[in-house]
């Protein structure tokens, strides 16, 4: 099992990982992500990638667009 860092919009469907960092200093975007419980350390699983990204984050499912997904840096687990 090799770990590698990548933005969540480059993950494939059903891929899992742990959020490593939120790569933006835009307060609005940070606030949105935090309000959905997306913070470094939370586990993330990709449910689908089209037409929008849907992630399982902790106990909730969230839908985000590509712009928001691209700032979530994930430590991906390769099976």
């Amino acid at each position: 099992m090799i770990n590698n860092l990548m933005p969540s919009d480059q993950l494939k469907s059903r891929q899992e990982g742990v959020v490593a960092e939120l790569t933006t200093n835009n307060k609005n975007t940070l606030r949105k992500l935090m309000s959905m419980g997306i913070l470094p350390g939370t586990s993330l699983k990709v449910i689908q990638t089209f037409p929008s990204y849907v992630f399982q984050v902790g106990y909730t499912q969230v839908a985000v667009d590509k712009e928001i997904a691209s700032v979530i840096l994930v430590n991906a687990i390769n099976h």
């Binding site: 975007t29 949105k32 992500l33 959905m36 929008s52 849907v54 909730t60 499912q61 969230v62 839908a63 985000v64 667009d65 712009e67 928001i68």
Partner: peptide
């Protein structure tokens, strides 16, 4: 600003 989309998907 361009719109951005984020939403919680309840069960």
């Amino acid at each position: 600003d361009k719109p951005s989309f984020y939403m919680e998907v309840p069960p």
